[in-house]
Design a protein around this nucleic acid. Structure first.
Lengths: 325, 325
DNA sequence: TTGTAGGCGTTATCAG
DNA sequence: CTGATAACGCCTACAA
């Protein structure tokens, strides 16, 4: 099977190479009849535009890059993977492909940008896990590289487009659910202040639960969560329900309650595999939609019809009610 | 910042473009001194080979493709993600990049191969989730497309290179561990016969546990696993320990034992986040190593120094002992 | 509406 | 060992 180029198609359809190119890139400029004939030839020959050649001419690769992270504590790591899947789907629909890379830290990641940009002419980046003082966004912005972030620019002005999930709304919904189930003392188990995501999750609970409610903080993980929950449940006026900043913490809370022989409703966050497996009520992020919206913003950027102001998208999470609350 | 091409470097180093190319691709053909001068120029200018141009010349893209699957039941889905991460790492080290795609089924996936091959000149594919009568391998083989599979060719002869984890050894190790802990009636909770992976996991247990041992099958999942475990534990001569084909099943078994008020040791498979979270003893697959070996086989294939016979790699899993066994 | 003439950055070929 | 030349497949002018 010989390689099929634009010339092969042209010969088959009895037109010039240029006409074939027009049919592909600017169809409306070609007469209906000719267009049809060319399309048939393309079909019959199974012709596909060669990206490398196109890229060399246009300087665009139709490739976008995303970093794949190691599955950190494993329990919450799957969030990124579901996002990745959604992004690959959405990119494919828009005629783009997703390229993966790994990086050890921000500096390492920036070096990778440089390489990817120079060697592969990447069209855009999707950044995840944004954090306070993130150097990646400013690097990209300084070079006019198109990008969107999944996660808002914590502590920085909105100088670029982003998509995020309304974390506060998630914990607020969880708290409301507990309130309407009759709970009156609803506690919060979260991370130490300073992480944007963690603070937002606390704030949503705080708003809905009222001032008198108890809270505790611990680093993420089942063990630390159990310890913190235990101290919370041992106080006078102990909460009868706990909203947690992650499924890991929620699992810890569940263990603490069991060990103490206490009945305590628990809600987690992220609706991970663990939550599904053990019947933990949890706040679920709309990851496929988030990915699709990221891709949508990106195509706007790449097609040049970018709005003058950066677009921001805040998606509401949903509560998945199971046995624990 | 102007675009830096091979010509820029050539001018800076005071040599011809070709010499620069030689320094990059066949260094030993250039005189030491010249080579050094060119290398300095490359360094100073931050020059990077343009993949698109190189690809056009050589027909090779230094890109390999992997399918990303939706996180099926979620609980076991993370296995593929860890593999993906390892592969991205290994590929980067070997100078390759990983491109992602999704597909609804085998036919859909084959159509994607065709597109990826034509449009992006992909160098190779890594297939996961091989199964009986897999049409993908024969399609690729018929077109001489380099590929390796993570998962052996079930029920077919070894006509291509593959990497797999020795599933039977994993369950055998789990069983031995239980035996040395004093258990004498060790049961197995697995999937219905027919899936290569499931059959291998059963066989390893069977070999180590002996003929008299009990087993039950159910589809994967916590609920089905609990039901099957319950019936197993209700029989006379019920097992005192259960080896399971997955962490989902193991979790079900744990629930069943608790509901029945029975003490039963349980071992899962895959060492997923759930196992880590709840302290489930589980068989762990060396996914990073599997990915690295896949990449190793691939580079052999791509560098033309492919052995005449396909290479097969069988990796031993390891048992992660936690509280449940 | 269609055809013709470069050139994108590399590398292979072949002469010096 | 080094340097000139052509070609990979496509797209953007420009001319017909």
């Amino acid at each position: 099977m010989q390689k099929v180029t634009i010339a092969t198609v042209a010969r088959r359809a009895g037109v010039s190479r240029q006409t074939v190119s027009n049919v592909i890139n600017t169809p409306d400029v070609v007469r209906e009849e000719t267009r049809e004939r060319v399309r048939e030839a393309i079909e019959e020959l199974g012709y596909r535009v060669n990206q490398a050649a196109r890229q060399m001419r246009t300087g665009r690769s139709r490739l976008i890059a995303v970093r794949i992270e190691p599955a950190r504590d494993g329990i919450n790591g799957s969030v990124l993977d579901r996002f990745l899947h959604g992004l690959t789907d959405a990119a494919g629909l828009a005629g783009y492909r997703v390229m993966l890379y790994t990086a050890g830290g921000d500096a390492d990641e920036i070096a990778t940008y440089d390489e990817l940009l120079n060697a592969y002419d990447l069209d855009a980046f999707v950044l995840t896990s944004t954090h306070h003082g993130d150097p990646r966004t400013s690097w990209l912005a300084a070079r006019d590289v198109p990008f969107v972030t999944f996660g808002r620019p914590w502590g920085a002005p909105d100088t670029h487009s982003w998509v995020d999930v309304d974390n506060a709304a998630g914990t607020a919904a969880a708290t409301s659910h507990l309130l309407s189930a009759g709970h009156r003392r609803i506690g919060f188990l979260g991370w130490p202040a300073g992480s944007g995501v963690g603070d937002a999750r606390r704030e949503g609970w705080h708003r809905a639960a009222g001032l008198s409610a108890l809270s505790a903080t611990s680093s993420d993980g089942v063990e630390p969560g159990a310890a913190a929950a235990k101290s919370l449940l041992s106080r006078p006026e102990a909460p009868t329900a706990l909203v947690c900043a992650s499924d890991s913490l929620a699992l810890g809370a569940l263990q603490a309650a069991r060990e103490l022989g206490r009945d305590c409703a628990v809600v987690g966050f992220d609706d991970t595999a663990v939550a599904q497996a053990i019947g933990l009520t949890s706040v679920s992020q709309p990851l496929a939609e988030a990915a699709a919206r990221c891709m949508g913003l990106l195509t706007e950027l790449l097609d040049g019809r970018a709005p003058s102001l950066p677009t921001t998208v805040l998606l509401p999470p949903s509560l998945v009610v199971r046995q624990t609350a």
